[in-house]
C-alpha cells in the first residue's frame, strides 16, 4: 500500500480534526476559552482518551467490587491500609494477589483528595476531574502512564452503563500492581456547572446526551433548531469552515444552511457545524502535504533484497 493510496483512506476533515484534538490535549499549555467571535475553539481539552460510565453505575459497581478492603493497619504488599475514615473517603483500595484494585467511590471528590489518598499508599498517581458531557460523567477519560504502562489496567464492568459509542463495557477504577513504580495520571469526567463548557464530550446523539436519538445531519438550520427547541436545548454557537479551511465560530448562520455535525458544549447547550451546501464540499486546501508515491510493499521488498 503506497502513501498515495493511504491518502484516500480517511477524509481530510477527519485527519484535520485529529490534529486539532491532539493540540488540545493536556500536554499543551492550557488554551484559552472559546474563541468567539471568529477563532477556532481548539477542540482542545475535549476529546480525550478512553471510555465511560455514569456516576450512579460507577458507584453501584464500586459497591459490588469493593467488599474486601483491608482492615485498618493491615499491610497490602508494600503499603499499609490507612484508618477506615480515610480509606473510605473517595477511593477504595482492595488487595487481590499481586494487584490493588482502586475503585472510584466518589467521582466528584477533587484531584487533591485523590492524590492524597494514592500518596497514602505510596503511589505517585494523580486523578483529575474535568467537566464532561452527561454520558461521560464519572468515566475515565484520560490516562498517562509510565513507559511500558507500569502494569496499570482499567477495571471494567459489563452491562452497568452505556458509553458514548453505545457499548456497555465501562471502567470503574484502575488495577495497580503492588510493585507499581513511576508516575501515572488519570482523568475522570465530572458533571459540569451550568454554563461551564465541557472538556470532554461524547457524540451529541449518544444515550444520555441532549440530542440522543435525534436525526439531524443534512437538515436545515431551521429544522434542527425546531427539534432542539422541543428539548429546551440552546445553540452555543455555530462552526463554519472558511475558504482557508479554518473552522470559525459564528453566533448565527442563515436558516437555510445545513447542519453537518453537533457536539455537546455545556449543560443544555450544543455546538452545530453548519454548511452552506449539502453535502458538505471538502475544500481543496484541506489535502496538503501528499508525498510522492512510493513503490508498493511486496514488489519493492523483493526488489530490495535482490
Amino acid at each position: 500500500m503506497t502513501d498515495s493510496q493511504v491518502a484516500h483512506l480517511a477524509q481530510a476533515e477527519t485527519m484535520a480534526a485529529l490534529a486539532e484534538d491532539i493540540t488540545g490535549t493536556i500536554a499543551a499549555p492550557r488554551p484559552d476559552a472559546p474563541a468567539l467571535p471568529g477563532g477556532r475553539r481548539p477542540r482542545s481539552m475535549r476529546k480525550r482518551l478512553l471510555i465511560g460510565v455514569p456516576v450512579a453505575a460507577a458507584m453501584a459497581v464500586a459497591g459490588l467490587i469493593a467488599t474486601s478492603v483491608g482492615s485498618p493497619g493491615q499491610r497490602l504488599g508494600p503499603v499499609t491500609v490507612g484508618p477506615p475514615k480515610a480509606q473510605a473517603a473517595v477511593l477504595s483500595f482492595t488487595r487481590h494477589g499481586r494487584f490493588i484494585d482502586v475503585i472510584v467511590r466518589d467521582p466528584v471528590a477533587g484531584a487533591r483528595k485523590y492524590r492524597a489518598e494514592f500518596a497514602r499508599y505510596h503511589l505517585d498517581i494523580s486523578l483529575g476531574l474535568v467537566p464532561a458531557s452527561p454520558s461521560l460523567v464519572g468515566t475515565l477519560v484520560y490516562e498517562s502512564l509510565p513507559a511500558g504502562d507500569g502494569g496499570l489496567r482499567p477495571i471494567t464492568a459489563v452491562g452497568k452503563c452505556f458509553t458514548g459509542g453505545g457499548g456497555n463495557v465501562c471502567p470503574v477504577g484502575v488495577r495497580v500492581p503492588v510493585d507499581f513504580k513511576g508516575a501515572a495520571s488519570l482523568v475522570f469526567g465530572r458533571a459540569a456547572r451550568p454554563g461551564e463548557p465541557y472538556e470532554t464530550t461524547a457524540a451529541a446523539t449518544a444515550p444520555g446526551e441532549v440530542m440522543h436519538g435525534m436525526t439531524y445531519v443534512g437538515k436545515t438550520v431551521t429544522a434542527v433548531l425546531a427539534m432542539l427547541r422541543a428539548r429546551h436545548v440552546q445553540v452555543a454557537h455555530y462552526v463554519v469552515e472558511n475558504s482557508r479551511c479554518m473552522n470559525v465560530a459564528r453566533r448565527t448562520v442563515p436558516r437555510r444552511w445545513h447542519i453537518s455535525n453537533a457536539d455537546p458544549w455545556s449543560p443544555g447547550e450544543v455546538v452545530l457545524w453548519a454548511s452552506k451546501t449539502w453535502p458538505v464540499q471538502v475544500p481543496k486546501c484541506a489535502s496538503v502535504g501528499l508525498p510522492a508515491p512510493v513503490p508498493s510493499p511486496v514488489a519493492s521488498a523483493s526488489g530490495g533484497a535482490g
Binding site: 500500500m1 503506497t2 493511504v6 491518502a7 493540540t23 499543551a28 502535504g289 508525498p291
Partner: peptide, 23 residues
C-alpha cells in the same frame, strides 16, 4: 507558535506515517 509548528509537521507527515503503520 507551537500549534502552528505542529500543524505544519502534521500536514506534511500524517499520510506517510499512516502509510508506515498500515504497512
Amino acid at each position: 507558535e507551537r500549534r502552528r509548528r505542529f500543524e505544519e509537521l502534521y500536514a506534511v507527515n500524517h499520510v506517510p506515517i499512516l502509510g508506515y503503520v498500515l504497512r
